[in-house]
């Protein structure tokens, strides 16, 4: 069950896909307004965990408990968004569908609806391209529109799957700042997955670090440590702090560790 301040509690959850165990005993809870990074290498199970929170995938054991409202109070920005360049749809149309995409009937012009959409576009700084076809927008612009689509229902929990992949450094900083600001303003809890924790260090209240199907969770300083990550990976790993940065290094000769680290781009982390 949830304590008063908690929005989401994942308790000892294990998940299998097609009979293969993907996640084991994942355990964490998020408080209202918290910003949590879900960090892990490709294939570590970030998308699977987010889909479990959404209820698209059922845990084989353990539980996922959401604050009252269930899925209706979750906003989601998926990792893969395949766009048809000919899709006859403007950015504002997609945002509006976030508000009432599940209603029957054609959208009749309504002032209230238009105002809400305009406000949301303004909040994510998407007003300049609000009337362009979504297929013609850049990756960063699309990302903003998708965030507006997810936020327009004022969800209590916002899930974002790798929203920073394929963005240049400036756009990454822009989106991160935007999310931090929006989450404060709307009191929205954010759970954001990324393979690189660097851009998130200054904004994360909490981290869920995935490796080998298990997770280490807590504050950054409590998780990004030699003992904790070594236990998670199952072999010795050094977390070295140099010049204000954190290097996560595997011991020489640890073949498995080497490959794991190479696959895992999260080997350099800046101490906030």
């Amino acid at each position: 069950m949830l304590t008063r301040s908690e929005v989401l509690a994942v308790r000892q959850a294990s998940v299998s896909l097609s009979g293969h165990p993907i996640l084991k005993d994942i355990d964490f809870a998020l408080n209202a307004g918290e910003f949590c990074g879900l960090i892990g290498a490709n294939g570590s199970g970030k998308t699977t965990l987010l889909r479990t929170v959404l209820g698209f995938v059922m845990p084989t054991s353990g539980s996922v408990t959401m604050e009252a409202g269930g899925r209706a109070s979750i906003g989601y920005v998926p990792q893969k968004f395949i766009l048809d360049p000919y899709m006859p749809m403007r950015a504002r149309d997609l945002v509006a569908l976030g508000l009432d995409g599940n209603r029957l009937g054609v959208p009749l012009p309504s002032r209230g609806r238009r105002r809400k959409v305009d406000e949301m576009l303004e909040a994510v700084e998407a007003t300049p391209f609000a009337d362009q076809r979504i297929g013609s927008l850049s990756g960063g612009q699309q990302q903003r529109v998708l965030i507006a689509h997810a936020l327009i229902r004022r969800p209590r929990l916002l899930l974002l799957d790798e929203p920073l992949a394929n963005l240049d450094i400036r756009s990454v900083a822009g989106i991160v700042a935007l999310l931090r600001r929006v989450s404060r303003e709307l009191q929205t809890t954010v759970l954001l997955s990324a393979h690189d924790m660097n851009p998130l260090l200054s904004v994360m209240d909490r981290i869920v670090y995935l490796a080998h199907g298990r997770a280490a969770t807590g504050a950054i300083d409590a998780v990004v440590r030699t003992e904790v990550l070594s236990r998670l990976y199952g072999y010795h790993i050094d977390v070295v702090r140099v010049h204000g940065r954190v290097l996560v290094v595997a011991a020489e000769g640890e073949g498995d560790a080497q490959t794991a680290i190479q696959r895992d781009p999260v080997h350099v982390a800046q101490v906030p």
Binding site: E6, P21, M58, P59, T60, S61, V64, T65, E67, A68
Partner: peptide, 22 residues
């Protein structure tokens, strides 16, 4: 054959989503 659950891991129903916060 793909649907077959793993032996030992019985699918348990997911806890109610709509449980109210404490």
């Amino acid at each position: 054959s793909r649907r077959q659950p793993e032996p030992g891991l019985k699918p348990r129903p997911r806890e109610g989503r709509a449980t109210t916060a404490g």
